[in-house]
């Protein structure tokens, strides 16, 4: 009888420990974004397992990335994309992987696909356009995920903006990405100006001027030399919009 009690207690302890680990797992799960991603499913058992099983993820991610470059050279689209996504999944904090995966999928892979189907002369223009858009969309999806995980997302936002502008021809989407890039803490100096120019050329002239003026006044004017090239761009917009002198930006002392 005592034996049964002891076995019952053992079972209770194991089940209790399991139930407790469910609680702790819920709490700690968000801190381990590397695991449980769909990208890893096709490559499980191909050495990537090691990366999931504990440390060494960065090292495995690096090796995976090197291998993906070999496939990139060979223009092996499925293999290259799978390995690049795997590298991203193994080390989702690495902006480098997201950025280059986004570029490779969004810009390169449509060309590889067209060549695979016989080349630019053989594939109809509509199909080419559809492929460019299809891969650009996929590239942007990858970049979107990277943007969510990166602490310095401006390069990823710029890449997404370029894809939206040049491949999707979706200027509204491109502007949204450029705006986010310009407003991020690691924004490059040119992001806002490009954003304003695209909005301007897209016909949203007043909106472009208002946004760019506000941005320049708040973020660029206080810096170093006040970014005179941006001011020159704004003056051009003021002229284009035929603003009255009192509606224009007051002339700074250093403006020529």
């Amino acid at each position: 009888m005592r034996r049964y009690y002891a076995s019952g207690l053992a079972l209770l302890l194991v089940v209790g420990a399991g139930a407790f680990s469910e609680i702790s797992w819920r709490s700690v799960r968000p801190s381990i974004p590397e695991i449980g991603r769909k990208e890893l499913e096709p490559t499980l058992g191909q050495g990537v397992l090691l990366g999931i099983l504990g440390g060494l993820r960065t090292v495995v991610a690096d090796l995976t990335w090197i291998r993906s470059y070999v496939l990139w050279e060979r223009k092996d689209r499925p293999g290259c994309e799978a390995l690049m996504r795997t590298a991203c999944a193994l080390d989702p904090h690495s902006r480098y992987f997201w950025e280059n995966t986004g570029y490779a999928i969004g810009f390169d892979m449509a060309h590889w696909e067209i060549r695979r189907r016989g080349g630019y002369a053989k594939v109809p223009a509509e199909t080419q356009q559809r492929l460019f858009q299809q891969y650009a969309r996929r590239g942007i999806d990858v970049l979107d995920e990277g943007i969510g995980r990166s602490k310095a997302p401006a390069p990823l936002l710029l890449c997404a903006a370029q894809l939206a502008e040049t491949k999707l021809k979706d200027h509204a989407l491109s502007v949204r990405y450029y705006q986010q890039a310009a407003e991020s803490h690691d924004a490059p100096w040119f992001a806002a100006r490009i954003c304003a120019v695209i909005m301007w050329e897209d016909g949203r002239k007043a909106e472009a001027y208002r946004w760019f003026r506000k941005y320049w006044t708040e973020r660029m004017l206080p810096k170093d030399d006040g970014y005179p090239d941006d001011l020159r761009q704004l003056r051009g917009m003021e002229t284009g919009l035929r603003l009255k002198p009192e509606e224009r930006i007051p002339r700074p002392s250093w403006e020529r």
Partner: peptide
């Protein structure tokens, strides 16, 4: 070995190496 790193941030690379060693 950090020269083989692809921009993860050196500290992360070093940490992962150490974590990997400890785990394995």
């Amino acid at each position: 070995f950090r020269v083989f790193d692809f921009g993860h941030g050196e500290l992360k690379f070093i940490a992962d190496f150490g974590f990997g060693g400890m785990f394995l």
